[in-house]
Design a protein around this nucleic acid. Structure first.
Lengths: 144, 144
DNA sequence: GTGATTGCAAAGGGTTTGCATTGTC
DNA sequence: GACAATGCAAACCCTTTGCAATCAC
């Protein structure tokens, strides 16, 4: 999605549009490699220096619950990376290096009808999902 | 798998069998709901009181890398739960409550031929994988 | 005896939270 | 003006690590 589209959705849901929020979404939309929360902060501060890490986290959580953000579980000292779904792009998943935290896009979403049915049956309200394959990338494999 | 089977695999790989290791595997094999690392510690201490949390973590990591343990990413204050693959049971995945950390088994493994091909192409050495659907369980949904 | 394993204690680090303040609508 | 959002600082707490001592083989 583009930044204006997301902003519009926020307004529709009654959320206020602050400069910080605008900047955070902007950074996420323009990011290549999915950034960590800290990396988002670093980039956001170039635009508006007075943003705090907890605001980044609060907005990441919000974006995630609204379904515009993929949260990648890294399982290394870096816990998570965050990726905005591009326009027209389906949800997709990642091959993750548990050594250096590098990740490679894998394939389209694996959510199945069967899963959706199970979610309904169990009475869960879905917020997001994740599919990761963990391993060592060629570089980290050699280091071991 | 059963505890003796896993012990045997450890021996084959040249790992030593300590009482702590034996107890940790025993607890995992007998667990119903996948425990957190701390819960494993608590149960292990009933058998052998002198086990430390870091030893639990070290063995969980080992079991995970050997492919006998599913690590579930919870994304709540509880980070992970751990589940030994039962005998003859295929790998499976979970529907996870981000409120209370409760989890429900979902379905068989989603690893595809396509994924394995991608892993090979990228030169990764696979260690494990995870597929989780996050949401609020009926109880936590009401609380919000 | 040798090298893996453990316990201890401390550090590390991502993420969350309470509260007063600020800013959007 | 009301209420959401922010900044600050501190807390939280899971997980990892270094190191000396211990133990399995």
């Amino acid at each position: 999605m583009t930044q204006p589209e997301i902003i519009k959705k926020f307004k529709e849901k009654g959320y206020k549009i602050t400069p910080q929020r605008r900047a955070i979404i902007d950074v996420l939309v323009k990011s290549g490699k999915p950034p960590t929360a800290k990396e988002v902060l670093r980039k956001v501060r170039v635009i508006s220096p007075e943003v705090s890490l907890d605001t980044v986290y609060r907005n990441l959580k919000l974006l995630s619950e609204m379904g515009y953000l993929i949260q990648i579980n890294l399982r290394s000292s870096e816990r998570s990376r965050f990726e905005i779904l591009k326009n027209g792009e389906q949800c997709h998943h990642h091959l993750v290096c548990i050594g250096c935290g590098d990740s490679v896009c894998l394939r389209q979403c694996v959510l199945s009808e069967q899963d959706l049915k199970a979610i309904k049956e169990k009475g869960y309200e879905m917020v997001g999902h994740a599919y990761e394959i963990y391993g060592y990338c060629p570089k980290c494999h050699k280091k071991k």
